[in-house]
Amino acid sequence: MAEKPKLYYFNGRGRMESIRWLLAAAGVEFDEEFIETREQYEKLLKEGRLLFGQLPLVEMDGKKIVQTRAILSYIASKYNLYGKDLDDRLLINMYVDGTIDFMSLCISYPFIPDAGRENQKTLIKQKAQERYFPVYEKVLKDHGRDYLVGNKLSFADVQLLEAILMAEEFHSDILSCFTHLQAFKARTMKIPTINKFLQPGSPKKPRPDAKYVATVKTVLKM
């Protein structure tokens, strides 16, 4: 029996959360080693496991995989969540890059000084409603299918659902003008593997708190 993938990251969302989401959607169980001290991080560096000196790191299939998009692409390809051909993959990559760009605004939020957080929340809503969500709304409306690409669950759908739920943590009414995204959210959350990941006790991480932020800053000497 193949070993479970092992994830190395902080005990929080950050860049690893999308990787957790994708593995969970594929029905793949995984183990995690949480980086809580500078010493753990330096050990990974000395052992040469961090190619560019950065987390996240995923060990699977005998490989030490770094760089978030490379990890996600490998998982999506391995578990048939990357479309049927090159054209599908092109669309998936474009949609995923959009959600990654948007979620970066949310991921950075806990590290912003208190004085700038209201402005960041406003920016998150503006970018969601004016730049990113209209794109996915139009795609779903125009082709009339359940999923973004090829009417089959893909990496892009998993990432979009994560982005929607993250945005709703800042603004609960963020989908009020997007009826197709509302329907997409409802049906995608019912997919058994995703529904399981959304339940209490799963590896899904909560919103970052002060302890998480302090740990990241200490480990990375920020």
Rank of each mutant, 00 (worst) to 15 (best):
V149R: 13
E42A: 02
K125A: 13
L57M: 09
V96H: 04
Q199W: 01
D209P: 00
G201P: 09
G201S: 03
K78S: 12
E17S: 06
A156V: 07
F133N: 10
M166C: 12
N80Y: 08
V216T: 01
I191K: 11
F133V: 10
K217A: 02
E118N: 12
E32Y: 02
D87Y: 13
T215G: 00
M222F: 08
N119M: 12
T188W: 11
R117G: 03
Y8E: 09
M222Q: 11
L44V: 06
A128R: 05
K138D: 13
F34L: 03
N195Q: 15
A26S: 14
S172N: 11
Y41G: 01
R13Q: 11
V66Q: 10
I124L: 09
D61N: 14
D61Q: 12
L50Q: 02
T122K: 15
K185C: 01
G53I: 07
K43Y: 00
Q40N: 04
F133K: 10
M60F: 12
L90V: 15
H171Q: 10
N93Y: 03
K63D: 07
D85H: 15
N80C: 06
K125M: 09
A70R: 00
M103L: 10
G14C: 12
M166F: 08
F170G: 02
K78C: 04
K152I: 04
E168K: 15
E42L: 11
Y74W: 14
D88M: 03
K6T: 14
K43M: 08
Q182F: 13
I191E: 15
K221Y: 00
E42V: 04
G27N: 11
L175F: 14
L51I: 08
A214P: 00
A2L: 05
R89V: 03
S172G: 13
G48E: 04
R187S: 12
A24Y: 01
Y74F: 11
Y74T: 03
G116H: 11
T68R: 07
K185P: 02
L140K: 11
K4F: 01
R145K: 15
A24R: 03
R49C: 01
M1W: 01
Q182N: 15
F111W: 07
F10Q: 06
V158M: 04
L198T: 08
A183V: 14
F52Q: 01
P208D: 10
I92A: 11
K205T: 09
D209S: 06
V135L: 13
E32H: 02
G14L: 05
K221H: 05
K4H: 05
R15L: 14
T193R: 14
E162P: 00
T188N: 12
P200Y: 12
M103C: 14
G53R: 11
A76W: 07
E137W: 09
S18C: 10
D101V: 13
P206N: 12
D209G: 15
Q40G: 05
N119T: 07
L44W: 04
E39V: 04
L45P: 01
F52D: 03
K217I: 00
F184S: 08
R89D: 06
